[in-house]
Computed example of a mutant assay.
Amino acid sequence: MKPIKSALFGVAATVLALSACTSSKQAEETVSGLNPARFDSIVNNKKTALYTLKNNNGMEVCITNFGGRVVSVVVPDANGKPTDVVLGYDNLKQYTDSVNSPSDYGSSVGRYANRIGGGKLTVAGKTYQLPQNNFGHCLHGGNSGWMYQVYDAEQPNDTTLVLTIVSPDGDNNFPGTVTAHTTYKVLSNNTLDITFDATTDKETVVNMTNHSYFNLNGDPSKEGTNMWLYINADNFTPADSTYMTTGEIRKVEGTPMDFRKAHALEETINDTTYDQIRNATGYDHNWCLNTYKNGKGDDSKTCAVLWSPVTKIGLSMYTNEPGVQVYTGNFQGTGISCKHGIKYPKHVSVCLESQKYPDTPNKKNWPSANLKPGEKYFSHVAYRFWTGDFATDK
């Protein structure tokens, strides 16, 4: 999904370096080659850091509490080689510099992931004008959404990180004070398990997601269109030229949107005879998951699979949400030096964002994102990594 325009957001406070007195353990590089000291800063009067989660099977996940962002995910390839499979930066300065290096890399997005049409939101009979930070729409909660805020962090053990954010009433003009948590866990079977929960003191909308950019090839300096994709969905929600859903739910059959039989992205991603591909210059669409029925999602069933024929690394996705936004890095190729100095090309990666459908608040027949006092928002997504030949049931 396209990042928020850099000109429309600036971090409110100057990022200040903390004291250089870090322990030798803090200064050690992670398996992914990150220096934790480069993430020790102060943003908006709150401390930031890099947190490392790991298991005993070769998986390491590094996360910063700035925006709740996954910075690296290392898993073994088919030959046992540790491979970083997500995009990002290797220092906090670039993450906070929304002018020179804007990104939503790896973020915990809120208050409302994806787009709200025209920035118009009506809740409990009252209409709110939200920021219009993307083609006239509100994207990812506005130009100072949660991906640019500092979460409070607690790491109870080597495999778990709990991030907390309190979003005040009127934050980007959304109603209600919302307390939200993102809990990251690394499981023994090489799964990155993520849960989101939230409560509010006034009726509002909440739709959180993780925005990691996956490249399973182990070389993000090259396009990733050789990766295979499977999506367990018979339908998707078409979008117009401003990336806004039209309200239609359309069958994938007979279109380049059909991934019920897995195939390499390169087979369909450049089919500009189809308006949806042409408008997005690739994929930036929501699929209506078959794993969601009668108002409930089955997160024990595979909803999507991404696979690399190079490393033989596969990613199986599970969620209780009704939709998944698939974004193929159509706005990459900016020439910005990213993690380890690599400049990412267009179509280098695939985002798999669990979510309510885009603009659900203005399309009342779609699964609701409304949250009332006394209720608890809960969302779950799991990314399980494995190796071997492609399969949908690994």
Score class of each variant (00 low, 15 high):
285 H>Q: 06
181 H>S: 00
156 P>N: 08
321 E>V: 00
146 W>Y: 06
213 Y>T: 00
367 P>F: 01
44 N>Y: 07
63 I>Q: 06
256 P>S: 02
66 F>R: 05
11 V>G: 03
372 K>E: 00
292 Y>T: 00
182 T>K: 11
14 T>P: 07
65 N>M: 08
210 N>M: 05
186 V>I: 15
229 L>Q: 04
269 I>K: 00
10 G>E: 13
245 T>D: 05
86 V>Q: 05
57 N>W: 05
76 P>W: 08
56 N>W: 05
2 K>N: 10
197 D>G: 02
100 N>P: 02
317 M>E: 03
264 A>S: 12
169 D>R: 13
375 E>S: 09
385 F>N: 01
120 K>Q: 12
323 G>T: 01
351 C>S: 11
179 T>K: 15
11 V>L: 09
381 V>E: 13
71 V>I: 15
17 A>C: 08
26 Q>S: 10
344 Y>L: 10
316 S>W: 11
234 D>H: 09
351 C>Y: 06
5 K>A: 11
140 H>K: 07
4 I>L: 09
148 Y>K: 15
231 I>G: 03
226 N>G: 14
176 G>F: 06
62 C>F: 09
312 K>W: 03
323 G>C: 11
181 H>M: 09
131 P>R: 06
191 T>I: 10
254 G>K: 01
167 S>Q: 09
87 L>C: 03
213 Y>A: 07
59 M>Y: 07
19 S>D: 13
233 A>V: 04
89 Y>Q: 04
48 T>Q: 04
7 A>L: 10
182 T>L: 02
283 Y>T: 05
221 S>P: 09
21 C>V: 15
326 V>N: 00
101 S>F: 12
377 Y>A: 03
174 F>H: 06
202 K>H: 15
190 N>Y: 04
36 P>F: 07
288 C>M: 13
250 R>F: 10
292 Y>M: 00
20 A>Y: 08
220 P>V: 06
166 V>Q: 07
186 V>T: 10
267 E>P: 05
327 Y>R: 05
207 N>V: 08
124 A>D: 14
210 N>Y: 05
117 G>S: 13
274 Y>E: 11
219 D>E: 13
116 I>C: 03
54 K>Q: 14
138 C>H: 03
134 N>D: 12
90 D>W: 06
270 N>Q: 15
360 T>R: 00
163 L>N: 04
232 N>G: 08
305 V>N: 02
279 N>R: 15
362 N>V: 12
337 S>G: 07
389 D>G: 12
160 T>P: 02
384 R>L: 09
162 V>S: 09
283 Y>R: 01
336 I>M: 09
32 S>I: 05
290 N>W: 01
162 V>R: 15
139 L>M: 10
304 A>C: 11
250 R>H: 10
370 N>S: 14
338 C>P: 04
296 K>Q: 14
288 C>L: 11
14 T>V: 13
348 V>N: 12
68 G>I: 04
376 K>A: 05
74 V>L: 07
58 G>W: 09
381 V>Q: 15
291 T>M: 06
238 P>D: 09
218 G>Q: 05
181 H>F: 10
234 D>E: 14
222 K>R: 13
281 T>W: 07
362 N>S: 11
193 D>N: 14
342 I>N: 08
202 K>R: 15
322 P>C: 10
77 D>K: 02
272 T>E: 11
290 N>Q: 07
338 C>M: 12
